[in-house]
């Protein structure tokens, strides 16, 4: 009964919310009103946009010494998550069978586990730092905590279901993924899609003003 609901209606609903939400958010970014910049252009905006998209991967020199943990743990988490999301054999198989119809190279089992451990390490340290540091605690909203916790639960349930033998554990993982998908477009998790346009926008603006960033 619950199993059918999780595998059936809720699964399709969460996918629909995820897809429509993302399209709506990105469209609203493109279509939305922008203040036109009336100043005289001092430089070209396109190279600035492209440069900033990549330059923001490198932490700012002045800040780096203060936010070592955030940099290290942040990279660990995001790289680990990326590896286990798109290169773990069960995930690739799932995407192949349900959506794409093709597959690609996958990590060996140990690689999958190491990626998960790296991602867990980063996420836990970042979450605890957010909670423990006076400043980040003040500037964090409920949404920030919720996004971290939901991501953690998705990863944890996936980790519980590693043997891929018990349907209860598979359902638990899928249910947490559904919650994650529904919550995704309405939260800061959207940065997975918006970080490129956001950086491009800033970069273009800076480029036009002749600022190197």
């Amino acid at each position: 009964m619950i199993a059918n609901f999780i595998d059936g209606p809720l699964w399709y609903f969460s996918q629909a919310v995820f897809a429509i939400g993302i399209i709506w958010k990105i469209l609203s970014l493109i279509v939305g009103k922008k203040k036109s910049d009336l100043s005289v252009a001092r430089g070209s905006s396109v190279p600035g946009a492209i440069r900033t998209i990549f330059s923001r991967f490198i932490p700012d020199k002045g800040m780096a010494s203060h936010i070592k943990l955030q940099i290290i743990a942040g990279y660990l988490f995001h790289l680990g998550l990326f590896a286990l999301l798109f290169f773990a054999a069960p995930h690739v198989r799932f995407l192949d069978e349900n959506f794409l119809g093709f597959s690609w190279i996958t990590l060996p089992h140990w690689g999958f586990i190491v990626a998960a451990q790296v991602a867990f390490l980063g996420l836990l340290l970042l979450f605890l730092h957010r909670l423990m540091h006076q400043v980040t605690r003040l500037i964090s909203s409920t949404g920030d905590y919720l996004a971290s916790i939901i991501t953690f639960i998705v990863m944890l349930t996936g980790c519980l279901a590693l043997l891929e033998e018990f349907s209860e554990l598979r359902l638990l993982h899928r249910f947490s993924v559904e919650i994650f998908l529904i919550y995704f477009p309405f939260s800061s998790l959207m940065h997975a899609f918006t970080f490129v346009p956001s950086r491009a926008f800033t970069g273009a603006w800076f480029g036009r003003r002749g600022i190197k960033s």
Partner: peptide, 11 residues
């Protein structure tokens, strides 16, 4: 059935 690093032993 399985072996290797971090082997999840399987049933």
């Amino acid at each position: 059935p399985e072996s290797g690093a971090f082997s999840s032993k399987g049933k």
